[in-house]
Computed example of a mutant assay.
Amino acid sequence: MYAIVEIAGAQFKVSKEQWLYTPKLQSEVGTLLTFDKVLLLDDEEGTVVIGAPILNKVTVKAKVLEHTKGDKIIVFKKKRRNGYKVKRGHRQEHTKVVIEDIIK
C-alpha cells in the first residue's frame, strides 16, 4: 500500500514505516502530523484511486524525527574579463519524518 502525498508544496510517494526528508516543517520533534492532501492511493488489492485533485477521507499520519540540514551546495558566479567572482555556499533545511499509517 502506498500513497502520493503533497507535503509543503512537494509530492512524495510514501508507504507505511518509511522515513523521508521533507522541506522544513514548523513542528517540534516528536510531534504527530496528519497530511490530508493525498493525490493517489494504491491499496493491498492493487486498486489505484486517483483524486480530482485530492482524495477525501484519506489521511497519512507521520511523526517528526529530527530537523537537519542537507549537503552544502557551492554557488559560484563569474563574469569574465571584469574581475568579478563570487563564491557562496548554501545548506537547505529539511525535516526527517517517519510515516506511521495510511488511513482510508
Rank of each mutant, 00 (worst) to 15 (best):
G9W: 08
V58R: 03
Q92C: 04
G9K: 07
I73L: 12
K16I: 01
R91M: 05
V75A: 03
D43I: 02
G83F: 01
G9Q: 12
F35M: 03
V14C: 07
K57W: 01
K85G: 05
H67G: 02
E28W: 03
I7H: 02
D101F: 02
Y21H: 00
D101V: 06
E44K: 08
N56D: 02
L41R: 14
Q92F: 03
I73K: 15
K57S: 08
P53V: 02
T34N: 12
I103L: 09
L41K: 10
V38H: 05
E17K: 11
K72L: 14
L39P: 11
K87W: 04
K16P: 02
V38A: 06
I74D: 00
V98Y: 05
T22H: 09
Q92V: 01
L32P: 00
A62H: 05
S15E: 13
I103R: 04
I50A: 09
L32I: 03
G89I: 05
T68N: 12
H94L: 14
K87I: 11
Q11C: 02
K61F: 06
L20S: 02
Q26H: 13
Y2P: 03
F76T: 14
L25Q: 15
R88K: 15
E45C: 00
K96G: 08
I74P: 04
K77E: 05
F35Q: 08
D101M: 01
T22L: 06
K24G: 00
V49F: 01
T59W: 00
K96S: 08
V58G: 05
K85V: 09
Y21C: 11
I103G: 06
K69N: 10
T47M: 10
Q26E: 13
H67Q: 10
V64Q: 09
G70E: 13
Q92N: 07
K61P: 00
K16C: 15
V48G: 07
D43H: 01
V14K: 02
P23G: 09
L41Y: 15
E28R: 11
K16V: 11
Q92T: 04
Y21R: 10
T22N: 07
T68F: 03
Y21Q: 07
V60F: 05
K37F: 03
G89Y: 02
V49D: 07
V86F: 10
D101H: 01
W19L: 14
I102G: 10
Q26L: 12
A52Y: 07
E28Y: 02
D43E: 11
D43N: 14
Y84H: 11
I7Y: 04
T31I: 07
E6V: 06
F12R: 03
T47F: 07
V60E: 12
G83K: 08
V64L: 09
T68L: 15
G30S: 03
T22M: 01
L55F: 04
D71L: 06
S15W: 13
L25E: 13
I102C: 09
K79P: 07
E44G: 10
M1G: 15
W19H: 15
K13W: 06
L20W: 10
T34S: 12
A10Y: 11
K79G: 12
T22A: 13
I50Y: 12
V58F: 02
K78V: 01
K87Q: 11
T47L: 09
V29K: 14
E6P: 01
V5E: 04
V5S: 04
K72E: 13
W19D: 14
L40S: 02
K57D: 13
A52S: 15
K16R: 03
A3W: 08
K96L: 14
I103T: 15
E45V: 12
F76L: 09
E17W: 14
T68P: 11
K79W: 04
V38Y: 09
